[in-house]
């Protein structure tokens, strides 16, 4: 299955604001830890290894 790279969130601005709000008040180390947990949660939700492989590759590009 191909990784969805087209916009797929109905209200992007609302989601982005919620994402930042979830981090508010955390230290940098706590934020990194939150992000790590979030990646694991979302990866488990996706499940399909071929999709996750493509996501890992896209995230690594240009790093």
């Amino acid at each position: 299955m191909p990784l969805i790279t087209k916009p797929n969130i109905v209200d992007t601005d609302e989601f982005y604001a919620k994402l930042l709000a979830t981090h508010r008040g955390l230290s940098e180390a706590q934020s990194h830890a939150l992000n790590a947990r979030l990646v694991l949660i979302l990866a488990n939700h996706i499940g399909a290894v071929d999709v996750l492989d493509q996501a890992l590759e896209l995230a690594r590009d240009g790093a």
């Binding site: 969805i4 790279t5 087209k6 916009p7 797929n8 969130i9 992007t12 601005d13 982005y16 994402l19 930042l20 981090h23 955390l26 230290s27 940098e28 934020s31 939150l34 992000n35 896209l58 590009d61 240009g62």
Partner: peptide
Amino acid sequence: GAERLFRDAVLHLAARADFARPMVN
């Protein structure tokens, strides 16, 4: 912190994937 991290991540991805473009504000 996180605001900066996500902002830079969105800009990084916007050149590579369509989904990040509507996130650029």
